[in-house]
C-alpha cells in the first residue's frame, strides 16, 4: 500500500473513525504525552482538539507550537501487530480565534457530541494543529510519509 490515493484514504479513515489520539508536546526539552479527543478536516490539513487553558499541554504548546499527534487503530489485541494502522501527524498548534470558533466547534461536536458542555466552556481553548507531515505505519514496519505544503 504505497500509492498516494491509498495513503490519503487510510489517513482520512483514521481521522474519521478514531476518536482519541496522543498529543506530544514538550517543556524545556522534556517530552510530555497526553490523550486528546480530536476531529480532523477532510483535506487532512488540520486537526482540532479542545483543552482547558490550565493544562500542562496548553502551557507547553503555547511556549512551543511544534507538536506531534499519534492516532492508531489498535484494539489492544495481538492482531494489532499485523492489522493496526498508525499515523503520526507533525505540525504547529495554535488556539483558534473567535471568528472561526463556531464553524470549528460545530465540526468537533458533530464527532464528539457528548463533549458539548466541556468544549463550549469559557475556560477551554479550541486548538488547531496545522499539519505539515503525516507518517503512516502499517504492516508492522512499513512507513510512508505524506508531506503537505
Amino acid at each position: 500500500m504505497t500509492h498516494y490515493e491509498d495513503i490519503k484514504k487510510q489517513i482520512r479513515e483514521l481521522l474519521i473513525n478514531q476518536k482519541l489520539g496522543v498529543l506530544s508536546t514538550h517543556h524545556s526539552g522534556q517530552p510530555y504525552a497526553s490523550l486528546i479527543a480530536f476531529a480532523g478536516r477532510e483535506d487532512l490539513r488540520e486537526i482540532f482538539f479542545v483543552t482547558p487553558r490550565t493544562t500542562r499541554k496548553f502551557a507547553n504548546l503555547s511556549a512551543d507550537s511544534r507538536v506531534a499527534i499519534l492516532i492508531n487503530s489498535s484494539l489492544n489485541m495481538d492482531s494489532d501487530f499485523h492489522e493496526a494502522v498508525s499515523i503520526t501527524a507533525l505540525g504547529n498548534a495554535k488556539e483558534i480565534n473567535k471568528a472561526e470558533k463556531y464553524e470549528i466547534l460545530s465540526l468537533y461536536l458533530t464527532k464528539h457530541p457528548y463533549l458539548e458542555a466541556f468544549a463550549t466552556s469559557p475556560t477551554c481553548a479550541v486548538v488547531r494543529v496545522s499539519i505539515k507531515t503525516y507518517v503512516m505505519v502499517k504492516n508492522f514496519q512499513h512507513v510512508m510519509e505524506l508531506h503537505i505544503d
Binding site: T2, H3, Y4, E5, I7, K8, D43, L44, V135, N139, F140, Q141, H142, V143, M144, E145, L146, H147, I148, D149
Partner: peptide
C-alpha cells in the same frame, strides 16, 4: 506519480 497534486507529496520512509 500523482503525489504532487494539491500540494500533497508522498515519500517513502521505511519499506518492508
Amino acid at each position: 506519480d500523482s503525489s504532487n497534486e494539491y500540494g500533497l507529496k508522498v515519500n517513502p520512509r521505511q519499506l518492508v
